[in-house]
Write a protein that binds this DNA or RNA. Structure first.
Lengths: 161, 161
DNA sequence: ACCATAATGTTCAATCATGAACATAATTGT
DNA sequence: ACAATTATGTTCATGATTGAACATTATGGT
């Protein structure tokens, strides 16, 4: 059915659109995934936002707070609130850059690295579990679709700044 | 040992797993979608959580707060916080059920209905935009995958209650 | 009928995320 | 060189979400 026809008809509801239904499913799956991950991480005393940070520090040693915030699609102020907590727990370190005195370079402590590895195991296991043995090719196609969407949405983002 | 070392059979880092990368993409897409939707709804003075509520009231007239919370995968207390706001703005009504004096039956006011229709247009348009003309069949496959995941995760949910 | 249990909704304190306003440091244009 | 602009990080007030404790009402077992 044609998009234009659909949107000009009288008796159609958003939830009758395949794209709409599909997107609702994606959103609900994300929500559930977050909640389940929160439960499974509870015994490590970290939450999904912390894990996101730790994984990125694991991957990109020496990243700045700004870069980190951009990768995570959150505000800088969010990092300013969360990172000192992780620093107090001695999971991460913040050292100021000699060249640019504005930036703080982030890295994991040995303790933080160990914790991150444990947490990543949990996350990976959850992702495997929740996929229930679905074929890898499906995953790849989903990833493609999502990355296209991300590109489109980021473009809109940048256009209004 | 080289961090970047990856065998074709065994993935050493989470981000080398197709499922992991795919899931990260899904999560980021959701995040961006929420942020964009928040911006596009701003002039109506509602946010995505409010829209979720309104759409469900549009669809399921007379639903209770408990049922609504279950559909939205949020806590009952969340509804107790948000619904009075919408009621004060005269977008919804809450009438107590005669048969069961515990439950409050929810419905949209005419104003609320109109606002909901406007907001749903915006949401539908955003979903269409962000998909960038991807084929409907891809959407359907994604929906299937997500619904399978939702089923699996809900099962785990119920098992520990 | 009666007591125990479950279901529904509210309140409250705690936590998370955000944007605006701010301070400091770097960069650019002239 | 210097003023204007941009970039980085912090602080603060605000709003969203949660879970626990609570009050009220239904339901079930005896």
């Amino acid at each position: 059915m044609n998009k234009r026809q659909v949107s000009s008809e009288h008796h159609h509801f958003p939830w009758d659109h395949p794209r709409f239904r599909s997107w609702i499913a994606v959103a609900r799956a994300c929500q559930l995934m977050q909640q389940t991950l929160t439960r499974r991480l509870a015994h490590l005393d970290i939450k999904p936002p912390h894990l996101d940070i730790l994984v990125n520090l694991y991957r990109f040693e020496g990243i700045s707070q700004q870069e980190l915030a951009r990768k995570l699609l959150v505000g800088r102020s969010n990092m300013s609130m969360l990172l000192p907590q992780l620093e107090k727990r001695e999971l991460i370190e913040r050292r100021s850059d000699a060249r640019d005195k504005r930036v703080l370079r982030l890295s994991l402590t040995p303790t933080g690295r160990t914790l991150t590895e444990e947490a990543m195991e949990i996350q990976t296991a959850l992702i495997e579990d929740s996929h229930g043995g679905a074929p890898i090719e499906d995953c790849m196609k989903i990833a493609e679709s999502m990355e296209r969407m991300i590109a489109i949405l980021l473009k809109e983002d940048r256009e209004l700044s």
